[in-house]
Design a protein around this nucleic acid. Sequence first.
DNA 1: CGTGTTAAGATACAACATATCATTTTTGAA
DNA 2: TTCAAAAATGATATGTTGTATCTTAACACG
Lengths: 152, 152
Amino acid sequence: MGQHDHHEHHGDSLADAAQANLEKSGEKWTDTRAAIFDTLAGFSRPASAYDIAELVSTARGKRVAPNSVYRILDLFVANNLAMRVESANAYLANSHPGCEHDCIFLVCDTCGEATHVDDDSLSQQVRKVATAEGFKSIRPVIEVRGICQKCN
Amino acid sequence: MGQHDHHEHHGDSLADAAQANLEKSGEKWTDTRAAIFDTLAGFSRPASAYDIAELVSTARGKRVAPNSVYRILDLFVANNLAMRVESANAYLANSHPGCEHDCIFLVCDTCGEATHVDDDSLSQQVRKVATAEGFKSIRPVIEVRGICQKCN
DNA sequence: CGTGTTAAGATACAACATATCATTTTTGAA
DNA sequence: TTCAAAAATGATATGTTGTATCTTAACACG
Ligand SMILES: [Zn+2]
Ligand SMILES: [Zn+2]
Ligand SMILES: [Zn+2]
Ligand SMILES: [Zn+2]
């Protein structure tokens, strides 16, 4: 189903890719941003801004306010370093920054884990439906809520 | 794109259809539920529980608390009388209760209006992707954020 | 340096959502 | 009809998510 080439990154490799991507857009990879990215990437589930604020605060020994976290998450989303899972009011690190496409998230109602799926033909169809209705600046939100295999 | 027969209801006809549907499930069509449904159906855009609480309170001259509204909206969603638009934290009356299918919502970031689209083949594909990953109790969330034709 | 710009912090508050317990209304059997 | 159980709604408190505004700190660069 992955109809395009891309690289799934992990750990340091992911942070490096994220940094490279952000800097390519002329943005800076500051300590705070790095800490927030690392924390986000450390979650195996979509993390709320408050989750991240708490962990980063502890990790750095000084409080990081939620609004700062939101600011940086917004920056990450705008630059494809992270995605927002709308049905969970939470965020996920993008495991393949630099690769532009519409992700599909399968979110388990029981354990909260989110599976990331790519299906370009499907997301293209969604875009086509919206285009047909005259929509511009299209951002598909394709998610599935349900019970994952492990929880069944 | 609507690959199945169904009826779009409006006004009293819609409320009647909603009532019939709810009662078919053994639930009661109380005054409060009727008022909340009417208010919800009167919105041309996804309405938040608080929006509805405020309007219903005014209309009935007595306060209806948000938690009551949430309770009833949950009931409506469970019985297909309303749908939740996840990316807007808000609700829409279902213009065709009794007709089971996965709706697609196109939501304008500028004016907030939501266009309702049905595409069974598309939503079936989304379900298929989730099924292939071992998901059960699947509830697709297919929405598109963007700028609508009028706002362009 | 000094000055303008960008990033981050502090604080307050708004918006969305749920938990718990009390009260009212409905129902249906005695 | 009366009364007890169940269902619906109300009151209240609190938790969670998100934004607005202003201040302070870090940085870049002439
Ligand atoms: Zn990809
Ligand atoms: Zn699970
Ligand atoms: Zn339909
Ligand atoms: Zn619009």
